[in-house]
Amino acid sequence: MSLFTGGYQARQDRRRYLERGLSIIATFGILYWLGINFHKSPSQFFQASLIGLSNGVLYALIALGYTLVYGIIELINFAHGDLFMLSAVFSANFIAIWFHKEKSGPAAWGVFLMCLVAVMTFAATINVGIERFAYRRLRRAPKLAPLITAVGVSFVLQFIGLRWNGSGPKTWNTVLPAGGFHISGVNIEYTTIISFAVTAPLLLLMSWIVTRTRQGKAMRATAQDQDAARLMGINVNRTISFTFALGGALAGAAGILFQQTRGLTSYNLGFQLGLIAFTSAVMGGIGNLQGAVLGALLIGLIQGLNDGLPIGLGQQWSQTVVFSILILLMAFRPTGLLGKPVTEKV
């Protein structure tokens, strides 16, 4: 018996050393790679980081919608990426077609702000509607049922996008100021600043709602135990609707930011960015809000550095790098970066 446990112990130790060794080698490898790149061209390094982070905040807005919904009803809402896509198409139509604004200017910026409010309301309403009609009835059904429904809803939204936007990508004139300025060789675009300026307050507002308000308390309680939450007098249905509204509003904001910074819409945007955002949520630890933001910024940064640094694998390898890192991370930390299960005594 002791022989067996001894062998097991030794194997465990060996495995732990191997893991530690590998992660040290990986860390040094990455640091070395960043170091030589930084040494070669600091301005390019900062430029790539900036681009990466500005993509990262966009991913964060979408990733939060996945993680909020997963946190409260343990559903991976596959339709969420497509909600982002519809929001982008809505924004393009709102600004360029309904309000005829295709040039930058004070009046157009006013329309941009109006559209921000409108698209957040639009996406929140659709998300609440989806939960009400497609997911609510399945709340006590086996987990696979709402999952496949979510895939179905994703297709429905995608085909609405296809009808609305056409089968090919569409380019748009945007109303945000073009160009930017230079700080010691790093080109900072106005649109980047606007992305940060819109996203940061939204993230702060969200974290305030979840941690400080009564509604947030109801959300956290419902996430931990629905029946117990009901016994506290919490209106669970309304709390879940509210969570979908919150996630939807953030996807709406991501939609307008994407459309106005890239000037592009396409019916399959939801698949591309949705997948990256979902990956961010998993990387950070699904269900964990800070984790989703951290994962999104990291993925944005990894992509930005990989694409923009003088010595790197280049854009074609971007997704491969991101998902390789995800796979490695999942193997060693299955709960994600910040997701740590509390040991629960029974």
């Binding site: 308390k217 956290r220 309680a221 931990q224 117990a228 016994l231 506290m232 007098g233 919490i234 509390v342």
Partner: peptide, 21 residues
């Protein structure tokens, strides 16, 4: 309720707060 069903990731204080929701 049966099986206690307290909120495991919340403190005693937060659990009591929720009782008075």
């Amino acid at each position: 309720p049966e099986g206690r069903r307290i909120f495991p990731r919340m403190s005693v204080r937060e659990n009591l707060d929720l009782g008075a929701f």
